[in-house]
Design a protein around this nucleic acid. Structure first.
Lengths: 137, 137
DNA sequence: ATACTCACTTGCACTTTGCAAGTTAGTACC
DNA sequence: GGTACTAACTTGCAAAGTGCAAGTGAGTAT
């Protein structure tokens, strides 16, 4: 109780302007990659398709996403309207992350990735559960 | 004249082992993202679909890819069997980059990205030329 | 009161990116 | 043969991002 919080945020401002032209591109490909064009975002979406929903479940993905990256990506994905978080229980509050309609429509992209990967990268597999979920959409 | 001696500067080795588990994943999504899951690779592929082929043409993409990034990505994409480079003229040697069959089959992924982007990101467009090329495949 | 769990947050070393400037090989003109 | 120019990279370096481990806070269990 007596512990002083003293949270010093001290966020370092970027000195270099972030005004990179990618975001101003009219190309839908460039714009989509701005949102989900990194190594982890689509894996999080994949896991949500697979039925995971809590922070802990997502953290235990096979690829072992670092916890700070997961937290940051969840914020970004929520800000982008791809996922929503809502408490599934009070006391203690536990949030569940779920795909929005916009997010669930990423299924086409995941399917295309799976199709290409299975054809061109040896040794890849798809889990039955995931296939079923992706088929449905 | 003789072929110039390869001036191989010593590549800085990473001190931290790069043995991240992503590459060991069986999931095709994770594996595909290992290869093209960054901000630039698929834009290069997009431009090759659009008909660009030389280094200079790719450098002048709307999104202004930095030149060292372009050079590095071209090497990676070639190593991954997604593109090939071949001289289209001698004296001076000029190389043209083209998609392999494996690379051209990324069209499905690009199409899925375009479809989702047009639906969910306002202000995006697709160029007639690109649409035609992507339709063909 | 102590230990434990979940869901994060913070600190920091290391890595990747992005910008600019430099290099290499050739052509063009004078 | 000297300067100018072009294409295709390469290099240097600071800024931004990533990944690991450790810390935090709210709540539960004993």
């Amino acid at each position: 109780m007596q512990v002083t919080p003293a949270k010093r945020k001290q966020r370092r401002k970027s000195k270099r302007a972030k005004a990179h032209s990618l975001s101003r591109s009219l190309c839908p490909i460039a714009n989509v990659l701005e949102v989900v064009g990194d190594k982890w975002s689509l894996l999080i979406v994949r896991d949500l398709f697979r039925g995971k929903s809590t922070y802990g479940e997502l953290l235990n993905s096979f690829e072992k996403i670092p916890t700070n990256i997961l937290a940051e990506r969840l914020k970004r994905l929520e800000a982008a309207g791809i996922i929503t978080s809502s408490p599934y229980q009070e006391r203690p509050v536990r949030n569940a992350y779920t795909l929005t309609k916009k997010g669930s429509e990423l299924a086409d992209i995941l399917q295309a990735l799976v199709k290409w990967g299975k054809r061109h990268i040896p040794g890849t597999k798809i889990y039955a559960n995931q296939r079923r979920v992706l088929r449905k959409l």
